[in-house]
Design a protein around this nucleic acid. Structure first.
Lengths: 338, 338
DNA sequence: GACTGGCACTCTGAGGCAGGGAGTGCCAAA
DNA sequence: TTTGGCACTCCCTGCCTCAGAGTGCCAGTC
């Protein structure tokens, strides 16, 4: 394909994203300094349409990029515009103030949505990719205990439960020592196996207590490990209410479903690299009209993903720059806190 | 005011809520068994309009209730329809499965939004009305500690921090004992004063550590006591997109602001009773077109509020019944867990 | 005095129609 | 290969009309 044809496609994408209206040949020829006439542009447009990069809502309208068109734009045409220094500084300042992991996540998600004027989604560091830093058993009264688990990413899970037998302070300390010895430093994915063997290692008279504790541990580690996700900026969707026609509702509904969001943030196997999924590339029906820009983050290895969701007609270069910058900086923070 | 006029108002409210369209005299006369002609209804309508209970979008349209009309309806006309036994059973089953406080709140907010098909808002038990049940200090490594606070309502706050000096295990146990002795059973509102006096009570060589711990405690108790709030069902707002005209966006934005939500759930002084705020009765501009139904909940005393938000043309009897039932049941659960 | 049927009036919303405008495809010429 | 010109298509807007819904008011009835 011709260089100029690519330029025409870029012009169409940029203009359409800016104006939200179909782009005609005249505008492309005049405003984008191609140095050719509108008629020439029309020929190129005919070719681009033939090849499936753009399409016409109706005969006498301008052109709109297709998903395939955006894809080409993202892959080959968009020049990433780095954040302004002011923005960069604001990001740093805002995130540096975070007190702990919860705070980092909350701030990150707000920041992303404000920076991009879209919906932002941030996954808490996944338990499946964390290791146990510390386990704590706290006695809350006769027969009532609290289990606290802290991971190397700073995530804290806690759970209260009842024991059928009443344990002495010393017994509790014993148990605490036991589970820490067995689990500390271990990846959470190995935990279920270790937990299953716990009863063999404890003093026999603690048998039932250990069994009950094991069940709670397992629930905490596996059942509740469903990954938590924070969302912000849902209101930004209304700016595109016309575009989303009827699907606005189902998108909002989907944004309240952890499972859907997890799927959206991407298959777990993607690395720290930035991913853009446009329109039909999203497998879920509700997101056929949206684009999702995601990036992994984490200290060294990826422990979670974050991303931004918007209409396919979004400012890709700007969004990509924002997501990348924020993901990098959050990774740095986690590195420092390790 | 005439009994029949009140019946006419009730008919208009019920019909308008059901059909979302202005209600004419003919429909009122025929469908609501008043036993009078449309002309008579028209006279009553003229009176109701004169008095400000209903109004006409334009000359040749039917009538719509005003905020004042809804208010009268809620105060004197609406017959609360209790939940069906099936619904009641579903509420109990769903909430009984909750594992801990977080789970109770999450489930409650989902339940409310599903039951009412509106936006639901639930405040976590307010720290300001809780007492300290237990404080725990956990050593996470040299100089690094975690503070965990558990309140009588089951709420758990946790915070990691660094100490400039490195403490021995025994020192930590001492500190833990100290803060528990001083704070256990005390209402959190008294905590700041007690914390200020902590340094006088500790061994002198722990001086700086205590000071640092006191600062963290204070932050946890006061600064972070901003009350947490859970929201669900925002998607339901889109069903009324036409009604909310332009304000949908600002409502969605407001729903992400803790401060606004707190204000919405009501001045802290309201008791366990149910409150309905309609249209202009909400002091915030963004909510001039919405109605809010809230109730306090808690074991004995009120520790928090929950509520439902929707367009002023909502099914008040149904919503009121749902909020009341859920609030009562959540209170029971908290009572049991105390 | 309260209610009712009748009637003229008002306003909305849908449907049909014409005209301007934007944009295209194609063709012949440079 | 590019370009100017031209006929064509389709949308959008404004305008008009008309049916329908609902009202207010009046005069008559119980």
């Amino acid at each position: 394909m011709d260089d100029r044809k690519l330029e025409v496609l870029r012009a169409i994408v940029e203009d359409y994203v800016a104006t939200q209206e179909p782009v005609g040949s005249k505008v492309v020829a005049q405003r984008h300094g191609l140095g050719v006439s509108a008629a020439t542009v029309r020929n190129d447009m005919a070719y681009l349409e033939e090849s499936g990069y753009i399409h016409q809502p109706h005969t006498s309208a301008g052109r709109i990029p297709t998903d395939k068109g955006y894809r080409l734009f993202v892959d080959r045409l968009g020049k990433i515009k780095p954040l302004s220094t002011a923005e960069r500084r604001a990001v740093h300042r805002f995130l540096a103030e975070a007190l702990d992991l919860d705070d980092v996540v909350t701030r990150t998600v707000r920041l992303l949505s404000q920076l991009t004027h879209q919906v932002a989604v941030v996954q808490y560091p996944s338990l499946n990719r964390s290791t146990v830093r510390h386990l704590e058993l706290v006695s809350l009264g006769p027969g009532r205990l609290m289990l606290v688990m802290i991971t190397d990413t700073g995530r804290v899970e806690q759970r209260q439960f009842e024991l059928s037998t009443d344990l002495s302070e010393d017994d509790i300390l014993d148990l605490r020592k036991l589970i820490n010895e067995q689990l500390q430093g271990k990846p959470l994915t190995d935990a279920p196996g270790i937990i299953a063997d716990l009863s063999d290692l404890a003093r026999p008279e603690l048998g039932t207590a250990v069994a009950e504790l094991a069940r709670v541990l397992l629930e905490t580690v596996v059942v509740r490990a469903e990954d938590r996700i924070a969302v912000a900026g849902a209101a930004n969707l209304t700016r595109h209410a016309a575009y989303f026609s009827g699907s606005l509702r189902s998108i909002l509904e989907a944004l309240e479903e952890e499972v859907v969001l997890m799927q959206l943030l991407g298959r777990a196997d993607t690395g720290p690299l930035l991913t853009v999924r446009i329109g039909d590339e999203n497998e879920m029906d509700d997101f056929r009209e949206t684009a999702v820009v995601t990036a992994g983050y984490g200290p060294g290895a990826v422990v979670g993903h974050m991303g931004v969701l918007g209409p396919t007609r979004m400012d890709y270069p700007g969004t990509i720059a924002a997501v990348r910058a924020v993901a990098r900086y959050v990774s740095e923070i986690l590195e420092q806190n390790r």
